[in-house]
C-alpha cells in the first residue's frame, strides 16, 4: 500500500505516493534523483545522508518518507542560488575542507543549522555540532576552520 504525502523539498512542494517502507533517503536519491544526499551506513551513524527536516539536521536514512508528510526538507541541492554558492559552501571550497566529498553535503547542512541557531559558535560548539557527521579524510581541522570562516561571512 502506498501513502500519499506532501513534502516541500528545497522550496518546491511535491505530492508523492510512497510505499510504507521507503525511507526519506531513498525517496530523495532514488525517486527524486537528488543524489547529493549520500548513503553511508543506513543506520544513522555516519551523517552522510543528513538533510534539514523542518530546519533540524537529521539522518534521512532513519526517517520514513511517510513521516516527512507535511514537512519542509532542505538538501544540499537547495543551498546554492544558481551558480552562487552559499557562504558555507564557499568557505568549504576556500578553506580546503573538502577531500573525498562524501561527508561534505551533511557537514555543510549541519553547519547551516548550527549557524542559524548560534551565529557565533566557539570551537567546542562547532565540534559538538559536527560530531554526528563522520569524516575519514580531513581530521575535521579544515572543516572546523570553514565553519568559523563562514560564521564571519554570514549575515
Amino acid at each position: 500500500m502506498k501513502h500519499d504525502i506532501q513534502v516541500t523539498i528545497n522550496g518546491t512542494s511535491h505530492q508523492l505516493a510512497v510505499p510504507a517502507n521507503r525511507t526519506l533517503l531513498e525517496l530523495l536519491r532514488d525517486d527524486l534523483r537528488l543524489t547529493g544526499t549520500n548513503k553511508g551506513c543506513e543506520a544513522g551513524d555516519c551523517g552522510a545522508c543528513t538533510v534539514l527536516l523542518d530546519g533540524d539536521p537529521v539522518p534521512s536514512c532513519l526517517v520514513l518518507a511517510v513521516q516527512a508528510d507535511g514537512c519542509d526538507v532542505l538538501t544540499i541541492e537547495g543551498l546554492a542560488s544558481g551558480n552562487r554558492l552559499h557562504p558555507i559552501q564557499q568557505a568549504f571550497v576556500d578553506t580546503g575542507a573538502v577531500q573525498c566529498g562524501y561527508c561534505t553535503p551533511g557537514m555543510i547542512l549541519v553547519s547551516l543549522a548550527l549557524l542559524r541557531k548560534n551565529p557565533h559558535p566557539d570551537e567546542a560548539e562547532i565540534r559538538g555540532a559536527l560530531s554526528g557527521n563522520l569524516c575519514r579524510c580531513t581530521g575535521y581541522q579544515k572543516i572546523v576552520q570553514a565553519v568559523q570562516a563562514a560564521a564571519k561571512e554570514m549575515p
Binding site: 543524489t35 547529493g36 541541492e77 564557499q90 580546503g96 561534505t104 555543510i108
Partner: peptide, 21 residues
C-alpha cells in the same frame, strides 16, 4: 588554489558510483 572538484562536491553534484542509474 581551490581543488578542481570542490564546487561539484559542495553543491552535491559530484557523482559517485551508487548515484548512477
Amino acid at each position: 588554489v581551490a581543488r578542481v572538484d570542490a564546487v561539484e562536491k559542495v553543491v552535491g553534484k559530484a557523482v559517485y558510483t551508487d548515484d548512477m542509474v
